[in-house]
Design a protein around this nucleic acid. Structure first.
Lengths: 114, 114
DNA sequence: TCAACAGTTCCGAATTTCTGAACTACGGAA
DNA sequence: TTCCGTAGTTCAGAAATTCGGAACTGTTGA
C-alpha cells in the first residue's frame, strides 16, 4: 500500500475543495467527521441510512477528501483514523468550510459556536 | 433552441453550486460576471488570457452555471446577457458565494464592501 | 502460522466531459 | 422578402472520469 498523500496547507487548492464537497456522500462523511472529536474510521461512516457505500467507493471518497486537503488520515493499528483539517483550512480560506457545511444544512454542533 | 432553464431559488442545490464552481474556468467566468454591472455576453468572456475557450465549451459552462442557479441568462437581440444571482443566493446560502470567490482570490471590488 | 478484519488497488463497464462541425435564432442591409 | 453576418446551441464521437465487485495488502490476535 502506497503511503498516504496529504497536501501541505499552502498547496491546498480551492477547486479541489469544492470538487470534493460537490458530492453529497462526501459531504455527509466530512460533516460526520467534523462532528467527531476523535477521528472516525472508514467503516463507521459507510452507512448513510438510505444506502451503504461499497467499500471501494468509500475508500475513494476518503482519498478525494484527503488529497484535496480536507482531512488527514493516519493508520492506527488495523484501522484508519480520519480527522478534518478545519482549523488549518479556516486559516487559509476563511469561512469557506463553514459556509459550505451551513449551505448543506450539515454544520455540526461543535462548529456552531466560534 | 430550447427555452433556457433557470431553477427557482428554493430549488437551488448546494452540490450543484459547488460542482459548478469547482472548475477554474467557470469561476473565472462567474467572477468576471460578478464584477460587471450590466450582464456580460458569452463571447466577451471567452478569453482567459492564457487560452481562448472554444465556444461549444463556453456554451456548456454557461449552461452549468445557469442550471446550478448561479447566473441568469436572457436573450437580448442577437446576444445573451448573463448576470449573477448573487443577491438571491446570499439570501439562501449566506456567505457561500463570497467565501468561494475569496478562496479563489477572485472577489470583485463591487463585492468587497457590504 | 493462520484467520479475521480494515482498507486499498485493480480493472472493466457506465457515465461524463470536451470540442469541432453543423445548426438555429436574430438583426440589418438591400 | 431574401440574404448575410454574428451569437450562441446542439450534435456526435473521442477522451477522460467515476463506480463498484473482486482480489489484494497490512495488521492484530490466537
Amino acid at each position: 500500500m502506497r503511503p498516504l498523500f496529504h497536501p501541505a496547507l499552502e498547496d491546498i487548492k480551492p477547486d479541489a475543495i469544492l470538487y470534493a464537497l460537490s458530492d453529497p456522500e462526501r459531504v455527509a462523511i466530512f460533516a460526520k467527521l467534523a462532528g467527531t472529536a476523535c477521528g472516525g474510521t472508514c467503516s463507521a461512516l459507510a452507512d448513510l441510512g438510505d444506502r451503504v457505500i461499497p467499500k471501494s467507493s468509500l475508500s475513494n471518497h476518503f482519498k478525494v477528501l484527503r488529497e484535496s486537503g480536507l482531512i488527514r488520515s493516519e493508520r492506527q493499528g488495523v484501522e484508519m483514523r480520519n480527522q478534518t483539517r478545519c482549523a488549518e483550512l479556516d486559516e487559509r480560506f476563511p469561512g469557506l468550510v463553514r459556509a459550505i457545511l451551513t449551505a448543506y444544512g450539515q454544520l455540526p454542533e461543535q462548529m456552531k459556536t466560534g
